[in-house]
Amino acid sequence: MAGGLGFVRRYDRSVWPAVVVESPWAKIRDTEMLWLRIMRGEAR
C-alpha cells in the first residue's frame, strides 16, 4: 500500500522458476474487496 493505493501479488510456485503476477494498483477499498474475493474463492 502506498498513497491510498494497493495491489495484490501472487506467486505461482507450481512452475519453475516461480511466476509473479500482480493486480493493477487500485484504491485500498477495491484492493481489499479483491483480496476478500480471492480468499472466498470467488476471483480468478
Rank of each mutant, 00 (worst) to 15 (best):
E32Y: 02
E32K: 04
D30N: 09
M33V: 10
S14Y: 09
E32R: 02
W35Y: 14
M33Y: 06
V20I: 15
W16P: 03
L5S: 06
S23C: 10
P17C: 09
G4S: 10
F7L: 01
R44C: 07
R13F: 14
R10H: 05
G6I: 03
P17V: 12
I28W: 00
R29M: 08
M39F: 08
T31H: 00
A18Y: 10
A2C: 13
I38H: 09
V19T: 03
Y11E: 08
R40Q: 15
W35S: 05
E22K: 14
R9K: 11
A43K: 11
V19D: 04
R10F: 09
P17H: 07
A2T: 06
K27N: 15
W25R: 03
E42C: 02
V15I: 15
G41R: 08
F7Q: 04
R29A: 12
R10Q: 07
I28P: 00
W25K: 01
A18T: 15
R29I: 04
I28G: 00
G3R: 08
D12L: 12
A26T: 02
K27H: 14
D12T: 09
E22T: 13
M1V: 13
M39D: 04
R44H: 12
E22S: 14
E22I: 05
L36Q: 15
G41V: 06
M33T: 11
R29P: 04
R44A: 11
V19C: 01
E42H: 02
V21D: 07
P17S: 10
W16L: 13
G4N: 12
D12G: 05
V19A: 01
A2I: 08
M1Y: 09
K27D: 14
F7G: 00
T31R: 01
A18I: 14
V19H: 03
L36M: 13
E42G: 01
A2F: 09
L5G: 04
W16T: 12
R44L: 12
V8Y: 07
L34K: 01
A43E: 14
G41M: 06
R13M: 13
D30P: 00
G6K: 03
R37I: 00
V21F: 10
L34R: 06
P17T: 12
V21L: 11
G4F: 04
A2M: 13
I38A: 03
M39G: 02
V15K: 14
G3L: 10
F7W: 14
Y11L: 09
A26N: 03
R40I: 00
D12Q: 13
R10I: 10
R40Y: 07
E42T: 02
E22Y: 10
R40W: 04
P17I: 14
L34D: 03
R10V: 10
S14K: 12
R13Q: 06
M1L: 13
R13P: 00
S14V: 08
G4L: 05
L5I: 02
R29T: 08
V21R: 09
M39L: 13
D30C: 05
L34M: 08
E42D: 12
P17A: 09
M39N: 07
W35V: 07
V8W: 06
W35N: 06
E32D: 11
T31Y: 00
R44P: 02
Y11I: 05
S23I: 05
T31E: 02
R37V: 00
A18E: 15
A18M: 15
L36T: 07
V8G: 01
G4Q: 13
I38G: 02
